[in-house]
Design a protein around this nucleic acid. Sequence first.
DNA 1: GCGGCCG
Length: 285
Amino acid sequence: MEGNSGGGGGSGGNDVELLCKTLQVEHKLFYFDLKENPRGRYLKISEKTSATRSTIIVPSNGISWFLDLFNYYANSDDQEVFSKELQLDTKVFYFDVGDNRRGRFLKISEASVSRNRSTIIVPAGSARDEGWAAFRNILAEINEASRLFVLPNQQNSEPSEHLVGLSDDVGAGFISSHSSLPSPATDLNVERSAVLPPAEEINNMGVSKMIRADQKRFFFDLGSNNRGHFLRISEVAGSDRSSIILPLSGLKQFYEMLGHFVEITKDRIEGMTSANVRTVDPTQR
DNA sequence: GCGGCCG
């Protein structure tokens, strides 16, 4: 079918269907197909009306971002919502709220490098955005199911290699389409990711390091979940611990940002050394 | 069986 980027025989008809769901909102029918092929896993969302059918393809690492965005649109007050952009791998999804005589709707457009833009339009629903809420609920079920499909056979071993390839661009996250969006994309990204329960972490590849600064200890742990790979930085002081979750796609920026502040403060930093970095056994914590 | 989306 048209789902896959890349050349060759484009017909992906033999992709494995992992899960299918349908949702009716007003007179529209939405099909959700979680599918898998050698290139990876994706969620195909089709909007079917009497005469038209249009489809967007969401990489599996984007499902939870879609879930977050539908939560945002379903829960926000009507006038408070902004357009959003979600970058996943080489695609960009545009979320825009529209309004006409038929009611409110959310337009989701997928733009990829070499393919025609495709769009689905989700009615907000007649009462309290229940169309969006229902859509959100389906996404939540699929997101949960997709996590479970990963579980068989995830110990330490191989999968990290192709997972890294798949998730390299994960976490570019939301970008505001409007310059007036209150919080910058990076804040939103870190903030939301940090809410993820540790239960979603899968493997930490045994890489853990710690540094001390004054009375605090900072732990650096690699991990991954259905959104991709991340670095968790935990601050531990006394019995308090708090963490930030940094998608690996943001690691280089983070590094450069730290470098910037090191540069502008270096005349105030004494004895900078890497002697206090050590590796810790992850099983001890 | 509406109807949005610069197709």
